[in-house]
Design a protein around this nucleic acid. Structure first.
Lengths: 369, 369
DNA sequence: CTAAAATATGAAAACGTTTTCATTTTCATG
DNA sequence: CATGAAAATGAAAACGTTTTCATATTTTAG
């Protein structure tokens, strides 16, 4: 309450309204409406509306006439009028850090195609990994009265109260991938990051690595926390010592990866296996190794995360954890459709749904058997 | 007219309406409206609306009160009511074959960020390279009454009449990347494909290639037509013979690329340079060469198109044509904002805007000097 | 054949804004 | 202080649907 009612909101409202007041002088040509169809067919607008919405109490003949006349007049339903009246938009909002990330691009595609089959549209917004923008977008999408919201949070999103407004309004919110900890008002669809971390590390161990590093993302995100837990579990299960100098918890950029590599390979005690929390970092690690004449997989084995297409292009190709973005996207939509139904019965349930992951073995962890 | 009024439209309208009629029983909690603000401040709704829209004829003190009360009540403008009344949505539609393609992902990001600064939202839709879906999406976005539409066509889109409806309605349409030939009702932003084809081919020639192949996309698309023209021009300028067996005009998939490679390297007369119209094809060509022990760049030089991140990962890295997606996106928005302004003056102009390209030299064309 | 039920349609209100037009208030000017 | 212009506000209509309630028509059952 404090948060919502305080200054940022005022700012947001002002932001949303045009800074300079401009008279709306755009004269768009008149569109045909249901009134035009009604007039043409000597029927009431109510009947036209019902016919177009396939209401059972409209004669088949009438429906046929209406559809034909609609086609003839080039009629298209005005989504705004419809949405205003019926309080639903058939539109789902999506907020994602950036669509250019392979995993997200694939998830979005799956979501969109699946939603389309249910007659829903998707508004895709990028937060550019900025919390401020994420908050603003949540607000904008609320203004648009989306029927539901799908969110992959930024790395800085620790507090999710900017989504409260939507939820209070009865708009289902679903998080995926980067999900907030301790926010129980929304459903969650996520990959099995713990297991992903576990099988990635296990692969390195089984390939003979004894000295394994983990270049992880910030532990503020559940994603990386879980993967790290999986890493620790695998190390423990195989009674391998953990060298704290080989643990990094940082934003997963190429620059950070290079710095971490330099740090680890500066001294004499070097790791013989590296698990990285994304493929960008894995690729940077590989590039570093190649530049330093460290043979991969001979002297160093690498496992990445996400199964980015680049991992199969590089030399050697890189072992990575497949997250099945298509399955994630489809699951999200399933959950969503359920929520939208349950919502009608005022029975909003929340849940956590975990999608299995799978290790894709490639050359960076040795011969593929 | 014939086209629009014929059967497909009926189909579309039916598709858009829910198949089974469902009673709208979703009871969403009541939202605060401008009437609530008006009541709280003992002002009329009209004044509230004006204040929120920063109308000049509202006292500063009143505006301040209104913004504060709006914040206090958690008010968010209802975009549908606003759009219905004012006939503008502040929303731009985008139809693109698929967002997972690197170039498109980057263009979209640029568009979205730029539009955001002008206060516009973006609805992103994927046509999955299906003409039918593209037509349906054009219809849906028209229903949503987007203020403008940005389109990268599918490869099958030869006839653009499904966008007529929007244009007749005064909604600006801008094409980019894949642009229709002979459709003069819309503005176009495109890369300099002719020059791209030219400099890519020139690079191969200057690197010493004499026998150059072009694995191109279908010539029904302007994109590939222009790149091929650039290729031909460069070959001609350097008096190199063109071997028709080394020209392919097909969808740019990995499978097609492999087939083309096999065909070319089956006989004795083999090319020593290949220009491909995208990087997926360039990578497939490189993989083929590696598998066949054909040394790149020693025996074969390769140039791709788009400067996909994968080109810098592969071994050897691949020379490619940079299309500056960021510049393309920004230009699109510039043109769009202009159109929206001009539109107000009923002065819809169209134009073609070309973005320069640049060759990024890498290992696949020999030593980089 | 009649009454009741089911089907089919219409009239009018409602959704939450913006905008036109009218009205009141404030302000500068002579 | 009167006057007109400018500034500030309000009343009410309008945007294009959907939906409630009422009414008319058809079908079914007895």
């Amino acid at each position: 309450m404090k948060k919502i009612a305080s200054l940022p909101l005022v700012y947001l409202i002002q932001k949303n309204s045009k800074q300079e007041y401009s008279i709306n002088n755009v004269k768009k040509p008149q569109q045909n409406t249901i009134l035009d169809i009604a007039e043409a067919l000597k029927l009431s607008p109510a009947t036209i509306s019902r016919a177009l919405n396939n209401h059972p109490y409209v004669k088949e003949k009438t429906k046929k006439d209406v559809f034909e006349m609609a086609a003839k007049l080039g009629y298209r339903r005005n989504q705004m009028a419809s949405g205003l009246r019926s309080n639903k938009t058939n539109t789902i909002g999506l907020i994602v850090p950036r669509i250019s990330m392979f995993f997200h691009a694939e998830v979005i595609t799956a979501i969109q195609n699946s939603l389309h089959s249910y007659g829903y549209n998707l508004i895709i917004c990028q937060s550019n990994d900025s919390l401020d923008l994420e908050m603003e977008l949540a607000d904008t999408l609320f203004s648009s009265r989306v029927d539901a919201l799908i969110v992959a949070c930024t790395l800085q999103t620790l507090d999710c109260s900017h989504f409260d407004k939507l939820i209070e309004n009865g708009t289902p919110v679903i998080f995926y991938d980067r999900v907030p900890t301790g926010y129980d008002k929304a459903s969650i669809v996520k990959g099995d990051d713990f297991n992903g971390g576990y099988i990635a590390t296990k692969k390195l161990i089984e390939a003979g690595c004894k000295k394994i590093a983990h270049v992880s993302g910030p532990l503020t995100s559940n994603l990386y926390l879980d993967r790290h837990a999986g890493f620790l579990k695998a190390m423990e299960a195989h009674k391998l010592a953990i060298n704290p100098d080989w643990l990094f918890h940082q934003e997963l950029t190429t620059g950070n990866a290079e710095r971490a590599m330099r740090q680890m390979f500066d001294g004499d005690d070097r790791p013989d296996g590296i698990f990285t929390d994304n493929d960008t970092t894995a690729i940077a690690a590989l590039e570093f190794a190649k530049a330093q004449q460290i043979h991969v997989p001979g002297q160093l084995k690498i496992v990445g995360y996400s199964n980015d297409p680049r991992t199969s292009i590089s030399s050697p190709s890189i072992t990575s954890v497949e997250q099945f973005p298509d399955a994630v996207g489809k699951k999200i939509v399933n959950v969503l459709i359920d929520l939208l139904k349950n919502n009608a019965e005022n029975l909003v349930k929340t849940g956590v749904f975990t999608i299995p992951v799978e290790l894709i073995s490639r050359a960076s962890t040795g011969v593929n058997k």
